[in-house]
């Protein structure tokens, strides 16, 4: 029997396309963020709130993934910013090729922020690199403080945890300190922001986080050698 070593990633084709996207984003100074959560944790509402805080002319666009329907795209399009729905037709996650295809109608020259709402699912999206600068996991307080331990992959791979729906804390038995501890057990360096997308509490901290990341992407572009 002959043993042939392969030693390559299972998702090498996805990773190759994601690598190309990441390079294109970097060249154009586009900050790309990939938002992941279970269904209904509040990704779309967080994005709606974020878009409504931007001045007209802000160079932002949104891609939103769902298995079916373009409800989220219609909600987000009210902001007036460019929005595209990616309907996966059954797939439980977005992959890099879907992003590549969806971007063909936009010019990266016209953007400096690309927000991607992944399909509602805490498991599968974690495996697929989309070329983003960072993954963001959204967890709502109604889901239970043990979720980071049950779904470690996505908490491990995300730079930021947005704990959403804190307006519901008086009504649900959610120990927020324990949720934070669990997230940091899986990922000690994780940043954590608590928000309510309905009352707006904490959204200023989220916007500051976003601005800091955008500024970092811009300065990376300025420092890049011109050739």
């Amino acid at each position: 029997m002959n043993r042939v070593p392969l030693e390559k990633k299972v998702l090498s084709e996805n990773d190759r396309i994601a690598g190309e996207l990441r390079e294109r984003f970097r060249e154009h100074g586009v900050l790309c963020l990939n938002l992941i959560s279970s269904p209904g944790a509040g990704k779309t509402l967080l994005l709606e709130r974020t878009l409504e805080s931007f001045a007209p002319g802000t160079r932002v666009a949104v891609l939103t993934g769902d298995i079916q329907t373009d409800n989220d795209a219609r909600r987000l399009a009210r902001s007036g910013f460019p929005v595209r729905q990616i309907t996966t037709g059954g797939a439980c996650h977005l992959d890099a090729r879907m992003i590549e295809r969806a971007l063909t109608e936009w010019r990266l020259e016209d953007l400096d922020l690309l927000l991607i709402e992944n399909v509602g699912n805490l498991v599968c999206p974690a495996s697929y690199d989309l070329g983003e600068a960072a993954k963001i996991v959204v967890l709502s307080v109604a889901e239970g403080e043990d979720k980071p331990l049950k779904y470690p992959s996505i908490f491990f791979k995300s730079a930021l945890l947005v704990l959403n729906k804190i307006d519901l804390l008086p009504y649900v038995p959610f120990r927020i300190e324990e949720a934070r501890e669990n997230a940091r057990r899986v990922h000690p360096e994780m940043e954590i922001i608590e928000v309510s997308c309905t009352t707006g509490e904490g959204l200023d901290v989220w916007r500051q986080w976003l601005e800091a990341r955008r500024e970092a992407a811009r300065s990376e572009l300025r420092e890049a050698p011109v050739c």
Partner: peptide, 20 residues
């Protein structure tokens, strides 16, 4: 207390066994 993660997120093809 500060240590770095060096492995555990692999999803890789290791090898094939074949009869030539």
């Amino acid at each position: 207390s500060k240590t770095e993660c060096t492995g555990g997120d692999e999803l890789e093809l290791a090898y094939l066994e074949m009869e030539e």
